[in-house]
Amino acid sequence: MNKHWMLVSGLCLGLAACLGGGVGVSDSPSPNPDSGQPAADPGYGGGNTTVRFALKSGNQAVNCNSLLSGIGVSQAQAKLTEGMIYVHDVVLINSRGQEVPLQLDQGSPWQFLNLALLDFAGGSCKQPGVDNNKPLAGSNSEVVGSVPAGAYTGLSFKVGVPVSAKNAKGEDVALNHQPAHKPPHPILGVYWLMWEWQSGHRFMRVDLAPEGGVKRQDGSSNDKWAFHLGSTDCQADSAVVGGYRCGKPNRVKVRFDQFNPRQDRVVLDLQSLFAGSDVARDDSADFGCKSNVTDQECQTLFRQLDLRLDESSPGGNDGGQPLTDGRHSKVFRLEKI
């Protein structure tokens, strides 16, 4: 054997020993916790699960009466006076791409069947004495439940109140359309989320009070600019649970392919929601948007939410439907807890 080759080989082995063993070509070094490189995520294993949400304006945490800056095309300053959304059909997505429903904890006062109410503003923003229906105490930014053991890598949910859901006996329970003052659960009896003129509920309510108010060309003004999302074009139909069928459901689908509830939370970003809106003026029928297909203000907001406001063509029957599969939301994002 060539003695020069033996010398080089021995030198290489010695260096490997000094360095704590050789590093093969196929091996990857362990990430340095101080390097900013994330460790490989094995996924979420299931069990008791909390999906956390947050309301923000850009990077600013938002709660009742927060003063927000840089809102909309006029970069307005505005105070948050309401911030509530319903979410349902919360599912974790396993490594095979299957959607596994999060079984919601029915002991939570903020949850009923497959529906949860997120109240970011909290009871201090409510007007006492408006109605006999009292607000739930405090705020809520979590959906709690459980999923079977598994390997979960994603999350999906919908913003809105479903038409119905099955109870523990397998019976259909009307949710969005039910007697306004006899709700099956307190989260469906919050007065300022009822939408009786549409025979249902507001799925998302975000009200802002911009500095200087909301102006119109005719000189009139209002103190608030409000966004109320809900099903529209609703007609009585005894064949449907709850007795109403809505031509435009307006339920928002959101999906994240990478999500771990131990590490991530879902953010609703108000700067993104109102990015194309001018909350300091409005010349349409409403001060803001009430999901009306003829309201120009709603065009921009629905586009941000990835929703089709009206039918794409006469008779298209696609009004109020998601534009995509929810993977590219402009309004909802993930951030590390």
Rank of each mutant, 00 (worst) to 15 (best):
K3V: 15
S9F: 06
C12P: 10
C12R: 12
L15Q: 14
G24V: 07
P31D: 12
G36K: 10
A61I: 12
V62I: 13
I71D: 06
A78Q: 05
I85V: 12
Y86Q: 09
N94A: 11
E99C: 08
L104G: 03
L104T: 02
Q111T: 02
D119Q: 04
A121F: 00
G123T: 12
N132I: 11
N133V: 10
V143D: 02
V144M: 08
V144Y: 01
S146Y: 00
V147S: 02
A151W: 04
V159Q: 01
V161M: 00
K169V: 03
G170W: 01
N176L: 09
N176E: 15
N176D: 15
Q178W: 03
A180M: 11
K182M: 15
G189N: 13
L193H: 06
W197G: 10
H201M: 13
D207M: 11
D207C: 05
E211K: 10
G212N: 11
V214F: 09
R216L: 08
W225H: 07
S231W: 01
K253R: 08
D257F: 05
Q258A: 15
Q263K: 14
D269H: 02
L273Y: 01
F274T: 03
A275Y: 02
S277D: 07
V279Y: 04
G288F: 12
Q299E: 12
F302S: 07
L307V: 05
R308E: 10
G319L: 11
L334N: 05
